[in-house]
Design a protein around this nucleic acid. Structure first.
Lengths: 330, 330
DNA sequence: GATGGTACTGCAATCGTTTTCATAACTTAT
DNA sequence: ATAAGTTATGAAAACGATTGCAGTACCATC
């Protein structure tokens, strides 16, 4: 591979001038620019990025931390982020933590070792107190899930309101014995979502049996499993709030096998409004999250921080939800 | 950030020795190893990856070229690849070409600029004759879609056989007027798939109207659109072979609106066996692709090439298909 | 006691850029 | 005619690691 030195020799100039041409520095005569361009072309020269990175102390790469890329919520989020990143000549490094704290730390270390310029958390495993220390190596922001006390921008949805609206819908439709499926851990996201549910329930003066509260519900199979548990109860709920359309789809599919009809015997509320929501039968009533918008917004914020070297500051950027009514609620 | 120089000073040794400790070179006394370890810890030293990359001419990063990450086939593929890559301390750079030749070339250029060590094509846009030139900058392999003449390993499925089996199934169930939805371009994958379909059709002595051949069918919406076209035909097909479960799901959903019953009025065959296939109603009869296995195998092959510095050679590694019968075919 | 091998360490060159500083030519203002 | 810009270029010092070569010390062998 030819180096800048080779180009310099062929062009009869110094490496410094070549570099100036590459980085279109002012103060290079048109004449030399042409000579250099010709020499570069002749040799098929391309600058070595690692040398540039070492010298410039920048990688033009942003890491996005997610649980798993095969989760459609994350894959859509990442897709939209990538579009914005690419447009600004940044590369995206997708980091799957798989709910593993150690892996998350391993990825955060890329910031220390200068392999990435910044980190976007779309899901978080470790406590903020642990992550905090990495702030001095580069900007960190949150998107979707977050750590509340972090002094950084947080692009998210008003989860409390979202689940409040959804729960309210169930109540308005006359369901009285509400069940709840929550996400994996004690994250801010699941906490807010649960609080919204509880607020609506309390407001309506309903009782929720502890038996009806499920945790760690994430996948289609989790949904099926939960339905089986419900089917075996003496005292069944008449509606269920789920944390994702996948869980809702699993519930609905399994309900058919157990002769439980949706929405009459059991109302089902999804979350996200994934494509799947309108394909299953009955279609899933769900809370629409503007996934792509979140991704775009978060990346916009990050790019802005990187190019204008803004200081990070605590800031909530909330995007709106809305309810999509289909047939899984009566 | 402390450098190797700082560690050397604190430890009272030369940078060379520190480097040897980092790379656990033989011939470093245990005594010095301990001193160095202590000094590194005290300073919170981590080697700068860009300096290492420049010096070693390696990045420990592999690019995977796909169309879009939000396509569940690709997101599953990437997820399994990432697991293997991570296990071998390689990072994965996910490159979405979005069916854009220029973008693909832009990503290939990362090989030239030394930002990646190798490329795995999971979908390909440009002609092999164009891609070929990049081989001298690093290993390239194919997985899923491929260029037949490329002198490199190709991890794929016997698409011809897969679609032959599927089409045969439709014929065995008594469908006689078969329709076909193909992928986007003139890739080897779509060519083989179509050939398999045609072979089965010809073997059964059936006729296929040109009207029944659809192209560029990839998404749920494409499926819906195709159904609408079919609904408006005087001479409707009685079964349809699709290139993906998404298209099949779109067809099925839209069929309900048009009063066309699946599987009786129209048999529908999917491809991939995505989770969605068992959620829609009726469940989709489909060709199961071992997506994760393909990802794992392809990454195994690539890692092997990188660590044992094997020469690339033309090689087909084919994984098996099987048919999953559900309710969308009678 | 000369020779050769092994274990350990450091010097300095190298990877391929960018950028500061110095220099010089040419304008323009005084 | 001199001072003070402006434009254009190159030499050389970074950036932060790795590694070939050389040197020293120690031990074993003939």
């Amino acid at each position: 591979m030819p180096t800048i030195e080779d180009v310099a020799k062929l062009a009869g100039l110094s490496p410094a001038t070549i570099s100036r041409v590459i980085n279109n520095h002012p103060y290079v005569s048109q004449e030399k620019k042409d000579i250099v361009a010709k020499a570069m072309k002749e040799l098929g020269y391309v600058p070595n990025s690692n040398a540039q990175r070492l010298r410039r102390q920048k990688t033009e790469t942003i890491a996005v931390l997610i649980q798993r890329i095969a989760n459609p919520f994350f894959s859509q989020l990442v897709e939209s982020m990538d579009i914005i990143a690419d447009r600004n000549n940044y590369k995206l490094l997708i980091c799957q933590t798989n709910n593993d704290k150690e892996k998350e730390l391993k990825y955060l270390n890329l910031l220390k070792t200068k392999q990435i310029d910044a980190v976007i958390f779309a899901s978080i495993e470790n406590e903020w107190s642990i992550v905090e220390g990495f702030l001095k190596y580069g900007p960190i922001i949150f998107c979707n899930d977050f750590a509340e006390t972090a002094p950084v921008p947080i692009v998210c949805l008003d989860q409390y309101k979202g689940s409040y609206i959804g729960t309210k819908h169930l109540i308005d439709r006359g369901y009285k014995r509400l069940s709840y499926c929550g996400g994996s851990k004690a994250t801010c996201l699941s906490r807010d979502r649960r609080a919204g549910f509880m607020a609506a329930v309390k407001e309506a003066g309903l009782n929720v049996s502890d038996q009806w509260l499920f945790k760690d519900a994430l996948t289609i199979d989790d949904g099926k499993q939960i339905l089986r548990e419900i089917a075996s109860m003496d005292n069944r709920p008449d509606a269920i709030f789920t944390g994702s359309d996948e869980v809702a789809a699993g519930l609905i599919t399994e309900a058919k096998r157990h002769g439980i009809t949706v929405p009459n015997d059991l109302g089902v509320l999804g979350f996200d409004d994934q494509p799947i929501a309108e394909l299953v039968e009955p279609g899933i009533t769900t809370i629409h999250q503007p996934v792509r918008k979140i991704g775009i917004k978060a990346m916009d914020v990050m790019i802005d921080i990187l190019v204008s070297k803004k200081k990070l500051e605590h800031q909530f950027i909330q995007l709106p939800f809305h309810l999509v009514v289909r047939e899984s609620t009566r």
